[in-house]
Amino acid sequence: MKKIDLACIVEDDPVQLFITRKYIELSGFVEKTLAYKNGKEAYTSLKAMFLNNEKLPQIIFLDLNMPVWDGWKFLDEFTQIPIEQGGAIYILTSSNHEDDIQRAEKYGLKNNYLVKPIDLSQLNGILPKLVTN
């Protein structure tokens, strides 16, 4: 089975990080998963990888409420990087607030909006599409 080489989780809450990472693991579609504690840390590392011509994650699970840089800030900055073939970004948040959903739409992520807790069936609906791509 073909797998996703690299996934990325941006999440400050260790419990959530654990759960997400565990499900990704359980899904069995992903080779390797990176994790960052906030938007800034994720941006800095990913940009460095880009500049080093390293392979970037094919999927990023992005939490919204985080210290230092929140998810929005990360989106603002990360989308500035001229990546030719960018991976998919999924917002994964505990907020089901209408305001947040609408805001996500502005980044074209309305359909990439997942509410915690994520479960295996959700992942199974997303990941295989990325593999075939």
Partner: peptide
């Protein structure tokens, strides 16, 4: 309510499922 509580409750239910 919408974020923190949900976040925690979803965490707990996620852990239980796992």
């Amino acid at each position: 309510v919408s974020h923190n509580l949900r976040s925690h409750s979803s965490g707990i239910s996620g852990i239980i499922q796992l």
